[in-house]
Amino acid sequence: MAKLTFKTDNCKGCGLCVDACPKHLLRIAPDKINKKGHHPAEITDPDACVGCAFCATMCPDCIIKVER
């Protein structure tokens, strides 16, 4: 099973990871705000993640760690 870890406080909420996910598992959390004042990215269904790391590849701020 794959595991994603987000450095949530560095996220700027640009949403590039959301578009990159082939399984549409990511979203910009509408109900959370991080230290910088952005809505951070989060995973909606961790069990469905296959760990392809497309999200991390597109993340400009390198906040996603992918383990598999």
Binding site: A2, G51, A53, T57, C62, I64, V66, E67, R68
Partner: peptide
Amino acid sequence: MVVFDKPH
């Protein structure tokens, strides 16, 4: 196994 992380 780490597949992707911030480079050193």
